Every structure is written in C-alpha cells, then in structure tokens.
Measured scan of single mutants.
Amino acid sequence: MQRVNMIMAESPGLITICLLGYLLSAECTVFLDHENANKILNRPKRYNSGKLEEFVQGNLERECMEEKCSFEEAREVFENTERTTEFWKQYVDGDQCESNPCLNGGSCKDDINSYECWCPFGFEGKNCELDVTCNIKNGRCEQFCKNSADNKVVCSCTEGYRLAENQKSCEPAVPFPCGRVSVSQTSKLTRAETVFPDVDYVNSTEAETILDNITQSTQSFNDFTRVVGGEDAKPGQFPWQVVLNGKVDAFCGGSIVNEKWIVTAAHCVETGVKITVVAGEHNIEETEHTEQKRNVIRIIPHHNYNAAINKYNHDIALLELDEPLVLNSYVTPICIADKEYTNIFLKFGSGYVSGWGRVFHKGRSALVLQYLRVPLVDRATCLRSTKFTIYNNMFCAGFHEGGRDSCQGDSGGPHVTEVEGTSFLTGIISWGEECAMKGKYGIYTKVSRYVNWIKEKTKLT
C-alpha cells in the first residue's frame, strides 16, 4: 500500500490518463441519441435557420407576430419608411378606419389613436360632414345658397324668414311668412316636400332668348283662358290664391305678392273693366268669414305684352289694390325667389296649380277651390304637342294621358313649387288646347323671366 501511494504521488498524470480511459469505455446513459432527441424537440425550422439574422431580410411573422416588435424591426421587413409607417399605425392600436367614419364618399386613412378623412370636392370637416359648395344638395341650405369668396357655403332665406341657429334652416321672422300653410287642420295635408338634388348652379339658368321682337298675326285659340281631375282644397291650404270678379264672377285667378299687390295673367284683364279681388276665398257660393274683398285701382301688364300681336306672350300683369290686405292664416303671400332659384325650383319637376275653373272641358265651374299636382314636361315634348308657338318664356306641365289639367277660369292662378315646406311661385296658368285632352298640356308663363320686374313694381313704400 505504501508503494502504491508513492507511485500516485510521483505520477499524477498517469492516474488522470487511467481515469479518462475508464470513462470513455463506459456506456453513456444520461444523453439520448440524435434521433430520439429530435422526437422530443420537434420544432419547425425557421426561415433563416442556421444563418445569422443580421444578414437576412426581415420576416413579418418572425419579427412582429411571434413577439412584439419595434418600429426598427418592422422597418427591416418593409425596407421602406412609408410602408412601415402605414403598417405601424394599425399594428400599434388597430384600424381606426374600420367603422368607416368618413361621410359623403370620403376616404379614410388610419393613424395612431386617430384617423384622417380625405374629402371629395365640396366637403370638409373631420368626417367630411361639412358642405362647402352650393353645387351639392344646395349646400344643405333649406332655401338659398351662395358661395363666399373663400368658396364656403353661405345660406340665406327669402323675405319674412331668418336663418336658424344651425345656419342652414329657415324659420319665420314674421307672423305670416310667405308660402307657408298655417291653418292647423290643413298642415297635415301639406304636399310632399321637395329635397334639393345635386345641381350645376353655374349652368342652372337656361341660355334662352326671349323672342321679344317676333311679330306674329293673332292666333285663334280655343278655350285658351284655361282644375280638371283635381281635388277639393281645404280652407287655408292655398292662402296665396285669390279669385278675380268682373263682368262675371271667378273669371280668373291670381296670387298675393304682398298686402297691396296681386300677380295674374295679362290676358285676364281689360282696361276700363272694374275688377274686384277676393282673398281668403274657399267656396265661392258661401260666406265663410275668411274672405277679404278689395278693388283694383291700377293694372300693370308687362311692358312687352301686346294682345294685338299675341294674347299669351309675356302673359303676366300686376294688380294694385285700393287697401292693403290683412295677412292671416287664410290670406298669405306666395314666396318669389330670384331668377336663378325660381328656375331651379321649376326644374324640380312638379308643381301645384289651383283655381275655381271648370271641372271638365266646357263644363261647370268649381264651387270649392280645386288643386292638382302636375309634372313638368320637357321642352321637346311640349313643342311636338301643339302647332302653336311655345315661346321661351312659357313652359308645359300636365299629363300625356289627359284627364287632369287646369281649365277655363283658372287662368292667372299660381303654379307653385314647394321647397322644404315653403311654396314659391314658378308659373302662372296661361293657356292650353281644350282641357285635359290626351297628348295636350297646360301652358304656363315662366315666372323666372319676370321676377325682377315683379319685385321692382310691387315694392311697398
């Protein structure tokens, strides 16, 4: 034993070699072989497995989906700052455009905790909710729209109204504003409101030439003092309507412009014939205590009207009353817009006519005020429907199939267009061939041609 100890002390290297040989010859039971080890760690190889990531292109799944990435790591994937920024906006807080917040056709661009709407022409605001041009839906104005110097929408209202708090709607500024039905039992019968379409306001006024200088022999019209197929109006439903009495009662109609003036057809009036105007009328054979009678003290036909040349060209006249009318729910003026808007309103496509005229061709006159909704007829169809001249200051309205029309005794009465609950004068009943005849239409004086003249002559002093 002493000898062994001496050998170990003198030859430590020998001992180490012996131990190493023993270990190498022993069977290893701690580690699995290569094949079995792979069965336990069965993990798919990654895209760049075996390579240094710093030297390969980034992978979106590896960089940002398996674990949260930084902007720089995302930049490695896209290799483009702009594309990385677009991805980053949604990656950080989701897609803010998912709810489609942009209105009126706006395009949404996502941002971090926010979004941006790219608005089409005519709109602005956070969600493109603000109209900035009158060309689109009248700028959301209830009545009139004008573009300011910086191309912003400025709404306005006709006389007797003021802008509401929203700067879009119009509200009454006087007790009985024009064009409004205020009798409670008839307010439910107000005709369907007309909503502004998209309009090209630059070209809204037709490029028409008034044929002022045409000389033409007097034409022989049949029954051209021209509501057939209409309905009984309720008291106060058309408070701007008046009836004219002269040699015979209810020979023509008219509309209240203001307390002192009536507008009617020029062919209705004769110099030297006494005319009485009755406002607030409903049943011409009954006294309903809503009527107001006034005498006409002055007749002003349009300066281009000449019955000797043509009885229905420039067929418009103004009547001055001896005493002002007292405005109330049964006696209310009709609204008159400017030339541009009167023309736009007419193009809405349908209007209402009213009167006490004959209820059928050569038949009896109506006792109760009649009204009828009539569609506008395109000019080409209008011209083809008659052998008589249709001037540019006239328009056609009615039904091709016949059966409904204005008729004798309705002449001078109103053709009105309702705009968001307020009625505007767009025409004056003038003439036609018979009444409600198939293929024939009622012919009306186009008020847009005469609004400046009306307003100039009827100013209240």
Score class of each variant (00 low, 15 high):
5 N>R: 09
438 K>V: 08
190 T>F: 08
338 D>Q: 05
196 F>I: 14
133 T>K: 15
440 K>M: 05
335 C>P: 02
193 E>H: 13
211 L>T: 15
201 Y>Q: 13
352 Y>C: 07
151 N>D: 09
4 V>N: 11
256 I>V: 06
116 E>H: 02
11 S>I: 14
343 N>L: 04
152 K>H: 08
148 S>Y: 08
405 D>I: 14
96 Q>F: 10
446 K>H: 04
208 E>K: 10
264 T>K: 00
62 R>E: 08
117 C>S: 00
409 G>A: 13
255 S>N: 03
36 N>R: 11
283 N>T: 12
344 I>P: 02
386 T>Q: 10
51 K>Q: 15
126 K>Y: 10
153 V>K: 10
30 V>Y: 15
238 F>T: 04
298 R>W: 03
383 L>I: 10
241 Q>F: 15
202 V>D: 07
14 L>G: 04
313 N>F: 08
330 Y>M: 08
459 K>D: 15
43 R>Q: 14
254 G>R: 01
315 D>V: 01
6 M>V: 11
225 T>I: 14
380 A>C: 06
417 T>M: 04
411 S>W: 13
19 L>I: 11
367 L>A: 14
367 L>E: 13
357 G>A: 12
280 G>Y: 02
303 H>A: 08
303 H>F: 08
319 L>A: 05
130 L>Q: 15
409 G>M: 13
378 D>Y: 03
104 N>Q: 03
433 E>C: 07
100 N>W: 06
186 T>R: 12
359 V>N: 12
273 V>H: 15
176 F>R: 05
104 N>T: 00
16 T>I: 09
280 G>W: 02
66 E>W: 04
93 D>W: 05
196 F>A: 15
10 E>Y: 04
302 H>P: 02
102 C>M: 00
158 T>V: 12
226 R>S: 06
385 S>P: 03
359 V>I: 15
214 I>S: 12
269 V>H: 03
382 C>V: 02
401 E>T: 11
295 N>D: 13
409 G>N: 13
105 G>A: 04
31 F>C: 08
116 E>A: 04
70 S>V: 09
129 E>T: 01
111 D>G: 08
173 A>Q: 07
175 P>M: 12
229 G>C: 11
9 A>K: 07
187 S>V: 11
419 V>M: 09
46 R>D: 07
26 A>I: 11
22 Y>F: 15
274 K>N: 15
56 V>Y: 09
242 V>T: 03
17 I>K: 02
41 L>G: 15
412 G>N: 04
160 G>D: 08
355 G>V: 07
327 L>T: 05
184 S>L: 15
161 Y>I: 00
41 L>F: 11
288 E>D: 10
59 N>A: 11
322 D>H: 04
409 G>V: 07
193 E>N: 11
57 Q>V: 13
267 H>K: 06
138 N>K: 05
81 T>R: 11
182 S>R: 10
147 N>Q: 13
136 I>E: 09
178 C>K: 01
107 S>N: 08
329 S>T: 12
358 R>K: 14
159 E>R: 05
155 C>N: 00
179 G>I: 01
174 V>T: 11
379 R>T: 15
319 L>S: 00
191 R>Q: 07
33 D>V: 09
9 A>Q: 13
405 D>G: 12
179 G>F: 01
459 K>F: 07
48 N>P: 15
450 Y>Q: 00
191 R>W: 08
347 K>M: 11
286 E>Q: 12
189 L>D: 15
68 K>V: 12
118 W>V: 01
114 S>M: 04
48 N>E: 15
383 L>M: 07
425 L>F: 02
299 I>D: 03
445 T>L: 11
333 P>Y: 01
390 I>T: 09
362 K>M: 09
103 L>C: 03
27 E>Q: 14
10 E>D: 15
270 E>C: 08
92 V>I: 10
178 C>H: 01
105 G>K: 04
128 C>Q: 01
224 F>Q: 06
111 D>E: 06
200 D>C: 05
338 D>A: 06
45 K>V: 12
165 E>C: 04
201 Y>R: 12
159 E>G: 07
241 Q>I: 11
254 G>M: 00
461 T>M: 09
428 I>V: 09
43 R>H: 07
149 A>C: 05
76 E>P: 15
28 C>E: 03
256 I>N: 00
98 E>D: 09
228 V>R: 13
412 G>T: 11
231 E>W: 12
178 C>Q: 02
444 Y>A: 03
360 F>I: 15
186 T>E: 14
76 E>H: 15
305 Y>G: 02
129 E>F: 01
156 S>P: 01
123 F>T: 05
107 S>Q: 11
255 S>P: 00
415 H>C: 02
30 V>S: 14
279 A>N: 01
110 D>G: 12
36 N>P: 15
138 N>L: 05
135 N>S: 11
388 F>V: 15
249 D>Q: 12
120 P>G: 05
308 A>F: 10
344 I>C: 04
93 D>F: 06
274 K>R: 11
332 T>Y: 04
340 E>H: 15
406 S>E: 15
340 E>S: 07
331 V>F: 01
220 S>E: 11
69 C>A: 04
168 K>L: 12
34 H>S: 07
444 Y>N: 02
135 N>R: 14
281 E>W: 11
234 K>T: 15
320 E>L: 04
445 T>A: 04
367 L>D: 12
461 T>L: 07
411 S>I: 12
322 D>P: 00
234 K>V: 13
278 V>C: 05
442 G>D: 03
286 E>I: 13
77 V>G: 15
15 I>F: 07
97 C>L: 01
220 S>K: 13
397 A>R: 02
53 E>Y: 09
254 G>N: 00
400 H>G: 14
429 I>C: 06
427 G>W: 00
27 E>P: 03
50 G>W: 07
458 T>H: 02
432 G>R: 14
23 L>S: 02
180 R>Y: 06
188 K>H: 07
13 G>S: 14
277 V>P: 01
